[in-house]
């Protein structure tokens, strides 16, 4: 908060410091280096995706998905989205991987070969992709300051949270203050999903093949993978 206050008050110092942080000769080099590193990371992401499509061992797929999430977190750091990168690394690469591994333990870890043709899905994907690529031609260039997205509410958020001594991290200010109800809705969704998972996995809901609830399943609450009752 003190930081935010001073940054707004000492406008002159601020400008001098900003100039010192970004000398003109360095900036072009930084831009290109950033773009280059990000293109490398994105290419790796695409390669990992192809591996996920081809891999039939589900354990391998889950580990590849974890690598994918960490690469995505690195890309997010270059895109200056540090909060999102931390969340992606902890939730996407951490919790998702653990949940997927637990599911593999409870089900099966091999994907059986396909019986039907993949031609139609491939065709649909290519058509959708071509339409989307055609749509990108109208989008602003990467990192352009004049892009429409920077013109509407974003400057207001930044200025207002500086003027009213909100937390120095603007993402926190927007998340907890401006869009607090949004966060409340998010918590509701997570709560509902948690209740759903508990109800689905708790046992006592198991039905036998002829539709009756079975009474002898109670000691099977550990949810072992042998519970195929169909």
């Amino acid at each position: 908060m003190i930081l935010a206050n001073k940054a707004v008050e000492n406008a002159a110092d601020h400008a001098v410091a900003a100039a010192a942080a970004n000398p003109p000769g360095i900036t072009k080099l930084t831009e290109n280096a950033e773009l280059f590193v990000m293109m490398v990371l994105l290419t790796l992401l695409a390669a990992i995706t192809l591996a996920i499509i081809r891999q039939r061992n589900m354990f391998g797929v889950v580990i590849l998905a974890g690598i994918y999430s960490f690469l995505m977190a690195s890309v997010m750091i270059i895109l200056d989205a540090v909060d999102v990168a931390m969340t992606e690394a902890s939730v996407g690469a951490g919790i998702s991987t653990v949940v997927l591994l637990a599911t593999l333990h409870l089900t099966q870890s091999i994907e059986y070969p396909q019986r039907r043709s993949v031609l139609i899905p491939f065709f649909i994907s290519v058509v959708v992709g071509a339409a989307l690529v055609w749509g990108t031609s109208g989008l602003p260039a990467f990192g352009a300051k004049t892009a429409p997205i920077h013109g509407h509410v974003a400057p207001t958020f930044i200025q207002y949270s500086a003027d009213h001594k909100m937390p120095p991290n603007i993402v926190t200010a927007v998340l907890a203050d401006f869009r607090g109800f949004d966060t409340l809705g998010e918590v509701t969704v997570v709560f509902t999903a948690g209740i759903g998972v508990l109800l689905l996995l708790q046992g006592g809901w198991r039905v036998t093949g002829n539709g009756r609830r079975s009474e002898d399943d109670d000691e099977q609450q550990g949810m072992d993978s042998s519970g195929g009752t169909a």
């Binding site: 940054a7 831009e31 200056d80 989205a81 540090v82 300051k145 920077h150």
Partner: peptide, 12 residues
């Protein structure tokens, strides 16, 4: 993302 910008955390 903005070129030469930084993460949205206030700094001098």
């Amino acid at each position: 993302k903005i070129h030469n910008g930084t993460a949205p955390i206030y700094d001098y």
